Computed example of a mutant assay.
Amino acid sequence: MSKCGQCIIKSFNAFHTLTIDELDTISDHKTSLTIKKGENLMTEGHAINGLYCIKQGKCKLTKLNTNGKEQIIKFVKGGDILGHRSILSEEPVGLTVTALEEMKVCFIPKGDIMQTINQNTAFSLQLMKNISNQLNHANDSISQMAQKPVKDRLAETLLKLEEIFGLDKDGNIDIILTREEIANTIGTATESAIRLLSNFKKEKIISLQGKHIKLLDRSTLRNISEGY
């Protein structure tokens, strides 16, 4: 099992604030997990007793609306941590986390996290900053869903997906999503998402090869996302 102090992933999250001794303690107690595509890492309404550090892979964070339909709230990739808000508030998990591809994850028990919080102020502040950023993201998502037309939401989502995941070797957004998942991200019916993607393709704003999406005209997408 690799040591946390030697893991490059720590530089992308709150663990970069820890001392070598603190990282060694976490390394001794962590559990390495492999989560297969389609499996849940966390489930809405369930309690957890630790946090997860995403070492490799991509996942979606979802919530069921009042009609029982999945709403995708956020996408997460390697370097992110999950579960800290729940263990700090001592409340059940508010979102379901599902792997979009095979993931390598480290689980760190709550006791080690709470001990580190009590001992390391920088770590505590970094976790609070992370939670604050998540709340700001949630507020932005609510505002977007309430105020923007679905076409604008799709344009903004495509730009954000490229920003989060980057490009593959062929210049496509480096994440594979079904049309239903895209629809669940922008809050519309699958048929509507398919039609809008087709229109973007006809207008040469994007290209589509199966589930692969390539952005061809980012300037136009930005204008659409801003309501122009």
Rank of each mutant, 00 (worst) to 15 (best):
K148G: 02
F200P: 00
T43W: 01
L23Q: 15
D174S: 15
C59K: 10
A189R: 03
S124M: 14
E162A: 11
I26N: 02
L51Y: 06
L100E: 10
F107C: 00
Q126K: 11
L82S: 05
S219L: 11
I205C: 08
K151C: 03
F12I: 05
I73N: 00
C53V: 14
H137Q: 07
K148R: 09
T66F: 12
C53G: 08
E163K: 12
G79E: 12
V150D: 05
T116P: 07
A155S: 07
A122I: 04
P109G: 07
C59T: 13
I72C: 01
T34K: 15
E39A: 12
D168N: 15
L158F: 00
K55Q: 13
C4E: 03
K214E: 08
Q71S: 06
E226A: 11
K77N: 14
K37V: 11
Q119G: 10
G57S: 14
R179C: 07
V97E: 00
Q71N: 05
M1Y: 09
H29E: 03
V105H: 05
C53W: 04
T17W: 10
F75H: 10
M1W: 02
K214N: 04
K10S: 02
I108V: 10
D170C: 11
D24V: 06
L82P: 04
F123L: 00
Y52K: 06
Q126L: 08
E226Q: 07
S198M: 06
V150G: 05
L196F: 05
Q209S: 13
L177F: 04
S141P: 01
I72Q: 01
R218V: 09
I35V: 15
N40H: 02
T66M: 07
M128G: 02
I35S: 03
C7F: 01
A122T: 12
H84V: 08
E163R: 13
I26T: 05
M114L: 15
A193I: 09
I113R: 07
L18N: 03
L125V: 14
Q126P: 00
M42G: 00
L125T: 06
L18M: 11
L33W: 11
G38T: 09
P92E: 12
K30C: 10
T157G: 00
D24H: 03
N118K: 12
I173G: 13
N199T: 14
F75Q: 09
N120F: 10
I173E: 13
D112A: 02
I8C: 12
A155E: 03
C53R: 07
N133M: 10
Q119L: 13
K74R: 11
E44S: 01
I182V: 15
K30F: 09
L23P: 10
F12H: 15
N49V: 03
H137R: 08
L208D: 07
T188I: 10
L161P: 01
T190Y: 01
L154C: 05
H29D: 02
Q56H: 15
S143V: 08
M145D: 08
F75I: 06
F75T: 00
L100N: 10
M42P: 00
T62S: 15
L51V: 13
A122H: 03
R153L: 06
A122F: 07
Q126N: 12
S207H: 04
T116L: 11
D80S: 14
G68A: 02
I186E: 09
K30Y: 06
M1Q: 09
I142P: 04
N139Y: 09
I186R: 08
I108E: 02
